[in-house]
Nucleic acid binder design. Structure first.
Lengths: 240, 240
DNA sequence: CTGTCCGATTGATATGAATCAAGTGCATGA
DNA sequence: TCATGCACTTGATTCATATCAATCGGACAG
C-alpha cells in the first residue's frame, strides 16, 4: 500500500465497520495510519481462546466482528462470565502484568491487536486517545457496578429480562416487518454463567417469557421481543 | 495562609494522612496549592448522605477519613451495596450527569470536594493526574469484575471469607500482641447487602468461622483473624 | 443500678433456584 | 432416510439461603 493510501480516507481503519465508539475513532487519519502499522488482525473461530486466565497481558484488542466472552473459572469448575464483548469493545484495561480473566470467541470473530507497549506510546502522545480510553474504562465500570446489583439482588426472571434488554440495546435489530429482534449467539449455559444462574433456570425463564407472550423464539439463537414494556418492567423489578 | 506556606512542604494536602494512592498524590506541591484552592473539606457523621441516586454529579470527592458506602436501592426496597470506600478512595468516575448510586457515611467521615468541571480542568492540564485517574478507574474495574464472580458464583461462606480478607488488606492492622485485627465499622445488614446475602446469613457464617476458630470477635466491630490461611483457602473456594 | 432500645444472634420454617434425571428436537454425517 | 450427538427443554427432588420469629446483649438515659 502506498503512503498516499495510508493517509487517505481509504485507510483500512476508516472502512472498518466497527461501531462509532471504538477507541481508534479517537485518532485522526494520519495518526491512524501510524497506529495501524503497529498491529495486526486476528481471526478466531467458535470456541477458540484469545487468552487464558493468568496469561501475560502484553496486547490490547479491539473487537471488529463477532462476540467474545470474558470469564473466570473457580478451582472446582464453577464459571462466571464477566462480560460479553461486541464489535467496538476494547480489551486491555488491566494495569496488571497478567490477565485476570480468560477470553474466548463465540462464533467467528475478528479483532485488531496492538502490543500494549505500543498502544501506551500512542496513549502518551495522543491525548484524545487517552481521554477515549478513560471514558471507556469509566463506562465499563458503571456497567460492572450495575451488574453487581443484578447478581446480588435480582431474581432469575429479572436477570433474564435485563439481559435481553441489554443485548437488544447492543446488538438488537429490526426485522423487515419491524419485528424487535435479538440475537443470542451464546449458549444457554453461557447466559446462565453470565447471570449467575444454571442453564436449566435460563431455559425455564425463557419458557415463562414465551408463555407470557413477552417474547417469541424464531430459533434457538434469535428471539423477538413482543412486549418491550413488559421486558423493561421486569428488568427493573417493577412487575410481580 | 501566605503564598509561601501554600507552596511549601507544609501545604495542608501534604500533611493529609490519606493513603499514598490518593489521586492528589499525582500533583506536585505547586500544583497542589492551586488544586487545593478549588475545593473544600466536608464532614459527615454516621448515616449522613453524601448524595442520592439520581442527584446531579457535579462534584468529585476524595475520602480522607472514615468509611462510605455506595449503593443502589430497587423499587421494592432491595438494596445492593456496590462498594465500601476507604481513605484514599475517589468518587467521581461517572461520565454521566447524575449519580447512578447513593453514597452514605458509616461513622464520622471527612472528604475533599472539588467541582467536577474544575477537576477536569486539572486533568486536562496535568497529564500525571489524568494518568492517575485512568489507573484508578482501571483498578476499580478489576475489583468490580472480581466482585461479579463473588456475587454470581460463590457460596455464603466463601463470600464472607473473601470479604474479611479484603477488609483486612485495606483496613486491617496489627494489635500490640501482633494480632491480625480487622475493623468492621459497617453493620451486619450492610455486609449482607454488600455480599448479596441477608444479615441473618452473615451472622450465622460469622458464628461458623468463630466456631471453626478461624476468627475471634473482640467486639461487634472488631474481629481478629486467627487463621489467615483458612480464610484465604475459603475465599478462593478451595476448602470444603 | 435499671429499664429501654436496637442491632446481633439463634431457631424454625419456607422457598427459589440448583441438582438430578429424562425426554425432545434439530443438525450433521453416513 | 436414518442413526448419532448435542444442546435445549421439562420434570422431580434437594438444598442453600431467605424469611419469619424469638431471644440476647451491649450502650445509653434516667
Amino acid at each position: 500500500m502506498t503512503k498516499r493510501a495510508m493517509l487517505s480516507k481509504d485507510h483500512p481503519c476508516r472502512s472498518c465497520d466497527v461501531s462509532a465508539e471504538a477507541l481508534c475513532r479517537a485518532l485522526d487519519v494520519e495518526t491512524l495510519a501510524d497506529f495501524r502499522n503497529q498491529g495486526g488482525r486476528l481471526h478466531l473461530t467458535a470456541g477458540q481462546t484469545l487468552f487464558h486466565q493468568g496469561d501475560p497481558a502484553d496486547c490490547v484488542f479491539s473487537l471488529t466482528s463477532g462476540v467474545v466472552k470474558l470469564y473466570a473459572i473457580l478451582s472446582d469448575g464453577r464459571r462466571q462470565i464477566v462480560a460479553f464483548l461486541f464489535p467496538g469493545d476494547f480489551v486491555g484495561f488491566e494495569t496488571q502484568q497478567s490477565h485476570g480473566f480468560a477470553a474466548e470467541a463465540i462464533g467467528d470473530t475478528t479483532l485488531c491487536r496492538v502490543l500494549k507497549r505500543r498502544f501506551e506510546w500512542f496513549v502518551d502522545h495522543y491525548p484524545a486517545l487517552a481521554e477515549a480510553r478513560y471514558r471507556r474504562a469509566a463506562a465499563e465500570l458503571a456497567i460492572a457496578q450495575e451488574r453487581m446489583v443484578t447478581l446480588g439482588r435480582q431474581t432469575a426472571a429479572e436477570r433474564l429480562a435485563g439481559f435481553l434488554s441489554d443485548i437488544q440495546r447492543r446488538a438488537g435489530f429490526r426485522g423487515r416487518d419491524g419485528a424487535n429482534l435479538v440475537p443470542l449467539p451464546m449458549s444457554r449455559g453461557d447466559i446462565a454463567d453470565y447471570l449467575g444462574l444454571t442453564k436449566e433456570t435460563v431455559s425455564r425463564e425463557l419458557t415463562n417469557l414465551r408463555k407470557a407472550r413477552v417474547i417469541r423464539s424464531h430459533s434457538l439463537t434469535l428471539i423477538e421481543i413482543l412486549d418491550p414494556r413488559g421486558i423493561g418492567a421486569l428488568a427493573c423489578g417493577l412487575a410481580a
